[in-house]
Simulated assay, not measured.
Amino acid sequence: MAKQIQIAIIGAGTFVKNQYIPRLSEISNLVSIKYIWSRSEESARSAVELANKSFTEVECKWGDAGLDDIIKDSSVVGVAVVLAAQVQVDIALRLLKAGKHVIQEKPAVANNAEAEMALSNYNFISPGIPNKPIWAVAENYRFEPGFIEGRMLIGEIGDMMSVQVIVEGSMNSSNPYFSSSWRRNFTGGFILDMGVHMIAGLRMLVGCELKSVSALTAHIDTTLPPPDTYPVHSIQLENGCPGIFVMATNIAPQIFWRVVGLNGTVQVERGNVDGKHGYLVSKFNVAGQCTSSFHPFSGVTEELKTFLHDISEASSDHKPDPRLSFSEGVRDVAVLEAMLESGTKQGAIVPVKTLTRSEILNIGL
């Protein structure tokens, strides 16, 4: 039986209660939650009460003093940072400097400038030592079986001819994140927060980076911060393949990724089968015949299991799973940043700025 890894959760909001605590409960043989922290005592206690059902020893921490307690506790080797995007990087770096392995929620950063500053600070942690604390970004789309299956099938359809990403996301008063204040005060707002998932899914499927984008943006739903709509995006992959990316909020959900190749087409679509939410993966051959499979959501559980495994092997020559790397999260943001910039320039083509391989090696990620 694997040894339980002791962690803390920084944050006690909706996603912690709806996802982190339930998913960690499913793998309680691998992990023990020692602390849950929030800015307020009330919020922390409400999350601890929920976690107590599976983790009876979990303690409540709040405020600056509570955070200091967690930082100083050497028995806590891993920390999940699930906070507003504006403060996640600063908190993560404090924990990393204390020697904790960190998995923080997406988006990794607000923009490339913040990414460069964050990576520079990370590089100064234990200089000269190859095994720095792990800095991971939670991006469950890279761990969803539907995307893993889709990537495999795309390898069977020959050279790519076009890609399409259509996102109609329901962001209205019925959505638990609609009233989130940090998303309303964040550059790009809901589009950036939700959009990094869609870009992660695209990059996962096609297996290459995006080279450039051309975007038109709009602000139609005044209950949401601008922009709320990307009516048209033309994109170009590094392999030369063209495509489109269309994203609009406040509509009944319909989300799919479609890749057309010389020998067939692969589509990954969010859906619901027998009451289970997940991804329907379909492959069409040149004769129009279709084979499909459905994969229920399990990405959050799989990414947390991978993070725990990487922690357990951190003292060896084991390389952390690249799907969780901070640099991958930064690349997702870089695409959205280019789209936002293009939107302000009436659709001008904007290159996507991404970290080079040598830069990644230089910072030890």
Rank of each mutant, 00 (worst) to 15 (best):
I5T: 15
I5W: 08
G11P: 02
T14R: 10
F15I: 14
V16G: 08
Q19C: 06
Y20T: 11
I21A: 08
I21Q: 05
S25L: 10
E26N: 10
I27W: 13
S28F: 14
N29K: 12
V31D: 02
I33C: 10
Y35R: 08
R39H: 13
R39E: 11
R39N: 12
E42T: 14
A44C: 06
S46A: 14
V48L: 10
V48H: 09
F55P: 09
T56Y: 11
T56M: 15
C60A: 14
G66P: 03
D68V: 05
I71K: 07
D73W: 11
D73Q: 04
S75F: 08
V77N: 02
V79D: 03
V79W: 03
A80Y: 01
V81E: 03
L83H: 03
A84T: 02
A85H: 10
Q86W: 00
V87S: 13
V87E: 07
V87N: 10
R94D: 15
A110F: 02
E114Q: 14
E114S: 04
E116H: 14
S120A: 11
S120K: 12
N121L: 14
I125W: 01
S126N: 07
P130I: 02
K132T: 06
V137S: 02
A138C: 08
G146T: 06
G146I: 06
R151L: 09
R151A: 15
L153R: 15
I154F: 04
G155L: 05
E156G: 11
D159S: 12
V167L: 03
E168I: 00
G169P: 00
G169M: 01
N175V: 00
N175H: 10
P176H: 06
F178W: 07
F178E: 00
S180G: 03
S181R: 09
W182T: 12
W182E: 09
R184V: 04
T187L: 05
T187A: 04
G188R: 02
G189D: 01
F190Y: 10
F190T: 00
D193E: 12
G195H: 04
G201N: 06
R203G: 09
R203L: 15
C208V: 09
E209L: 06
K211Q: 15
S212C: 10
S212F: 05
S214A: 15
T222G: 01
T229S: 08
Y230R: 01
G243I: 00
I244C: 07
A248H: 01
N250A: 10
I251K: 05
A252G: 06
P253E: 08
W257M: 07
W257Y: 12
V260Q: 15
T265E: 12
E269K: 12
G271I: 04
D274H: 08
K276V: 14
G278W: 04
G278A: 11
S282E: 08
G288E: 02
G288H: 04
H295A: 07
P296E: 02
S298A: 05
G299F: 02
G299N: 01
T301P: 00
L304Y: 04
F307W: 04
L308A: 03
H309K: 13
D310S: 01
I311S: 00
A314T: 06
L324G: 11
L324S: 06
S325L: 11
S325P: 02
R331K: 15
A334P: 04
V335P: 01
A338K: 08
A348E: 15
V350E: 05
V352D: 11
T354K: 10
T356V: 13
E359Q: 15
I360S: 05
I363W: 12
I363P: 12
L365A: 07
